[in-house]
């Protein structure tokens, strides 16, 4: 594969042939699994502890969340297309796809903020019960990760416009892409475990 060759040429030799940052990113993502795992299990533990108040399953709107989940899922596609573009040396497409990814991410975040507002109006808040608190903590941790990702995508976009992101530095897009996809798969898990799976009576 052509892109592998350019990557190999750029990195200094390592014992495994893997670039340091890439390995570091995967180790970090392995660590993040336990972070989000903890938050998800706290939610699963507390989802019915509503003290008679609203539970997530009383207030949520599956069609709406499905759309925003789909938006985030598709941002993973635009992300890989951005990577493919820079590996080809196509700066124009790179910028298009980076911006598309960031915009899809922002759409997702806006959807989340909208959803939160609706929930709060229906009486499902951080203070209504631990069921509420655990939902908001989980989703805002995820949202914070998406926001960091958006910042990094916009930085890449800025670097590209100033000519600081030549083809040889495709790895920067690749590694930020890894982070972005990870945030996406966390949402895949959250969408199933938190929204779709029926809560016990």
């Amino acid at each position: 594969m052509a892109d592998q060759a350019t990557v190999a040429a750029e990195v200094h030799q390592t014992s495994t042939g893997i670039e340091n940052t890439k390995l570091g990113m995967w180790v970090f993502l392995g660590s993040e699994c336990l972070l989000f795992g903890a938050l998800i299990s706290v939610f699963l533990l507390y989802r019915n502890h509503a003290l008679g108040g609203a539970r997530l399953h009383d207030v949520y709107d599956i069609p709406f969340t499905s759309v925003s989940s789909f938006v985030l899922l598709m941002s993973s596609l635009t992300m890989v297309l951005a990577l493919a573009a820079i590996q080809r040396g196509d700066q124009h497409r790179l910028r298009t796809w980076l911006l598309a990814t960031a915009l899809l991410g922002m759409t997702f975040i806006s959807g989340q903020i909208y959803e939160f507002t609706i929930f709060v109006h229906k009486g499902f808040t951080v203070h209504s019960s631990v069921a509420g608190a655990s939902f908001y903590i989980l989703t805002s941790f995820h949202g914070a990760h998406v926001t960091v990702g958006i910042l990094m995508l916009l930085s890449l976009f800025g670097m590209s416009t100033r000519g600081l992101l030549p083809k040889e530095r495709a790895t920067a897009v690749e590694y930020i892409g890894l982070y972005w996809h990870f945030v996406d798969i966390v949402w895949i898990v959250i969408f199933t475990l938190v929204y779709l799976i029926p809560a016990p009576k």
């Binding site: 336990l34 972070l35 019960s129 631990v130 903590i137």
Partner: peptide
């Protein structure tokens, strides 16, 4: 693999203390 777990535990403690949530308070669920 171990530190992220305690990080979450500490965040929940912090939220109980500064946001007034009840993750660890039995009387509030």
């Amino acid at each position: 693999f171990a530190l992220p777990i305690v990080t979450i535990a500490l965040f929940l403690l912090l939220f109980d203390r500064i946001l007034g949530t009840s993750f660890y308070i039995a009387s509030n669920g």
